[in-house]
Simulated assay, not measured.
Amino acid sequence: MAGSRLPAHGKADDHASTKPTLHASPKDHRAWTSATALLLLVPPLAMQVTDQVNWGVFDFATAALLIGCVALAWELSLRMTCNRVRRRTIALALAASFLLLWIELAVGIIGN
């Protein structure tokens, strides 16, 4: 095509016109806050149904901190890169880290 620009690797980027931004809309913050709140509502509901779920204040604070840190890291990664492969890699790393920490805190699979 005349006048079209291709990157050095010869493939057209689907995100060439988009740039990462460090400005988030209030809608983004509401979405993350709502998702965190909904996740934190699961244990109290489970505590009403069964005696096997027994969370205290420290458990809720830890869960909120862990979920909030993952949400913040994901938000920062969205702002810093537009590359889909990098975003998927970051999402996988965050999910694996979250699950590993959650399981470790719940049952202690690493060490004693």
Rank of each mutant, 00 (worst) to 15 (best):
T33P: 04
A31M: 14
P20C: 00
H23S: 01
L40R: 10
M1Q: 00
L100K: 03
A93C: 05
M1Y: 00
G108S: 03
V107Q: 13
Q52G: 03
L94A: 07
D13L: 09
K11E: 12
L100S: 04
D51A: 07
L72A: 15
M47D: 15
G111F: 06
R79K: 12
K11T: 01
V107A: 09
K19Y: 09
L39E: 05
R30L: 15
I103N: 03
M1N: 00
L101H: 02
D59F: 04
L78R: 13
W55D: 04
A95Q: 01
S25I: 00
L66R: 14
T21A: 12
A95H: 03
A64P: 04
N54D: 15
P44I: 01
S34I: 15
R30G: 14
R86W: 10
V70P: 05
A71R: 11
L78Q: 13
H29M: 07
N54V: 06
A31L: 13
T89K: 14
S4M: 11
E104G: 07
A8L: 12
S77E: 05
M80I: 01
A16D: 07
R84C: 05
V42R: 04
D51V: 05
F60Y: 15
G3V: 00
H15P: 00
D59E: 09
D28I: 06
A106K: 08
A37G: 10
G108N: 04
R87I: 01
L99I: 01
A37K: 12
F98S: 04
A46V: 12
M80T: 11
K11Y: 09
C82L: 11
A95Y: 02
G108K: 07
H15R: 09
R84E: 10
H9D: 15
A16M: 03
L92Y: 07
D59G: 04
L22H: 14
A24I: 04
L76R: 08
F60I: 05
R86A: 11
R5D: 09
H15N: 07
A91S: 07
M80R: 15
F58V: 14
L22I: 12
A2S: 06
W55L: 08
T89S: 13
T33L: 13
A73P: 06
P43D: 07
A31T: 14
L76A: 11
H9Q: 14
S34E: 15
D59C: 05
L99Y: 08
Q52P: 07
V49C: 11
L66N: 13
G10L: 07
G56P: 11
L76G: 03
Q52V: 09
N112H: 08
L94F: 08
A71N: 14
H15F: 01
W74E: 02
L92W: 10
G111I: 01
R86F: 09
E104Y: 10
L99A: 10
L105T: 01
L6H: 08
G10A: 07
T62S: 04
Q52L: 13
N54M: 10
V42T: 02
A64C: 11
K27A: 14
L41A: 15
S17N: 10
A73L: 05
V53E: 08
A96Y: 02
D14Y: 10
M1K: 00
I103Y: 01
R88M: 10
L99N: 09
V53H: 05
L99D: 06
N83V: 02
A37E: 12
A64R: 08
K19E: 13
I103P: 03
R5Y: 13
L99E: 10
V107E: 14
I103F: 01
A64H: 10
P44C: 05
R88E: 13
W32Y: 15
